[in-house]
């Protein structure tokens, strides 16, 4: 059994094969692999005995259930109104310059992906971003680079 097979098997064993467990199972794969590959979707469909098209259809509905390969750290910068007013564009620019990739792209070492996302709920502390599940607020072009430098220099 390869890693992914075991991952899917364990998740289905933990949550159950009923359809209402699909989201937690998809989220469990995302936690480990950062995206849902075609293979992962087929394995989930088989283990849960539901059509692969249904698994794919559900997955592609949700913006956090990516079906494109992502880096180890997915950066999601809020682009909704208050963050846009408070300098979101400068934050994106600073991240792009630091990582040398554009929004939507992943670094060659597969460590970072930059995305934009809708309202994160930190409008009173804009601009804000998520790095995987962690929240960073009141960003400046300088502070965002310091934050990402720490992620880059870990391990």
């Amino acid at each position: 059994m390869d890693f992914q097979e075991k991952l899917v098997h364990d998740l289905v064993a933990k949550h159950g094969t009923d359809r209402e467990n699909l989201l937690p199972i998809l989220q469990g794969v995302i936690d480990q692999e950062r995206y849902l590959s075609e293979e992962a979707i087929l394995k989930i469909a088989k283990e849960m005995s539901i059509p692969a098209a249904d698994v794919y259809g559900t997955a592609t509905f949700y913006s956090f259930l990516d079906t494109d390969p992502r880096g180890k750290y997915v950066i999601r910068v809020c682009k909704t109104i208050t963050c846009a007013m408070k300098g979101k564009n400068q934050i994106i620019q600073a991240i792009e310059n630091f990582l040398k990739i554009k929004v939507g792209e992943t670094t060659i070492d597969k460590k970072f992906t930059i995305l934009q996302t809708n309202c994160l709920g930190w409008c009173h502390k804009a601009p804000a971003m998520l790095v995987n599940d962690d929240v960073y607020t009141e960003l400046t072009p300088e502070s965002v680079v310091d934050i990402l430098r720490e992620y880059r220099e870990e391990n």
């Binding site: 467990n21 989201l23 559900t58």
Partner: peptide, 26 residues
Amino acid sequence: IFMGSGAYICGEESALFESMEGKRGE
């Protein structure tokens, strides 16, 4: 606790049920 996955429409109650049932949040 049931986690959402980044879809504004799932705050609409019936879309939320669909989402919890493992479906698209329609």
